[in-house]
Design a protein around this nucleic acid. Structure first.
Lengths: 132, 132
DNA sequence: CTTGACCTTGCCATGATGGCAAGGTTTATG
DNA sequence: CATAAACCTTGCCATCATGGCAAGGTCAAG
């Protein structure tokens, strides 16, 4: 299987497959005589794993850890759970930060009448120190 | 006022002040004979505005627009409100995306007993197509 | 044999920020 | 005054994950 087909099958772009190989996230693939990378179903499976982890917001470094756990049939499920929980905490922090921004912005926007008049509490709120 | 003091007063690092100047977000400052950038209170005010907008998650390009609205005493408050509301929608989308990741991950983590046993639904969930 | 679809490598760009290096300036201190 | 510390300058590199483009090689179908 060439890289293009592999990309379509896994949902990871050819560009990214090469990149993952380059940074050592996946092993170097075998090559045809003329240098084309060759993949099999197991590779597609692995790439799908990576793709799903990316979709869940794991960084490539975290995925590197997940993969080493995935590869290790002896590892404790607690190890994986710890990684997942750390990532959940990370997501929580990001969600909280965005929610706070949102709340501030909504409050400013509500105070703005939003008509033809130039007077605007949003810009004033940005110009003055936040009260909270 | 030198750039270091300006940075401390505005909460924008000296590095970023130079960067904002470089990309044309702020005007080039005056310089001393020996080339040191010089700032005044108005510059600090402007930088604080930028800082707060960054804290609210506006991109530098959006801030560029905000600044041109800020500079224009004739503009309608509706213009500002539109920008703010578009950004709120953007925040909403990001919050929703992160929340979805979180929910999926929490479900996987809950199914994982997290003990010494190697069996782990988290890795299985990543390896198999998501059901949702 | 030509054309088009595919592959290769490698460099550049994104966005916002930090770091470092090599060098010039200013200020404070001995 | 001399020197050191603290500051400034520019410029390049790095981050993180990804896309784009270019120049060239390969393969399959017509």
């Amino acid at each position: 299987m060439n890289i293009g087909e592999t990309a379509r099958a896994s949902g990871v772009s050819a560009k990214m497959i090469r990149h993952y190989e380059h940074i050592g996230l996946i092993r170097e693939s075998s090559r045809t005589f003329s240098g084309y990378r060759q993949y099999n179903e197991r590779d597609v499976h692995l790439l799908r794993f990576i793709r799903r982890a990316r979709d869940l917001g794991f960084s490539l470094e975290q995925i590197r850890q997940l993969l080493s756990l995935w590869d290790d049939p002896e590892r404790a499920s607690a190890d994986v759970k710890h990684l997942a929980e750390a990532h959940i905490a990370d997501l929580d922090a990001r969600i909280a930060a965005l929610s706070e921004m949102r709340a501030t912005l909504v409050a400013l926007a509500q105070a703005c009448h939003g008509d033809h008049r130039p007077d605007c509490p949003i810009l004033q709120g940005l110009a003055a120190p936040p009260d909270s």
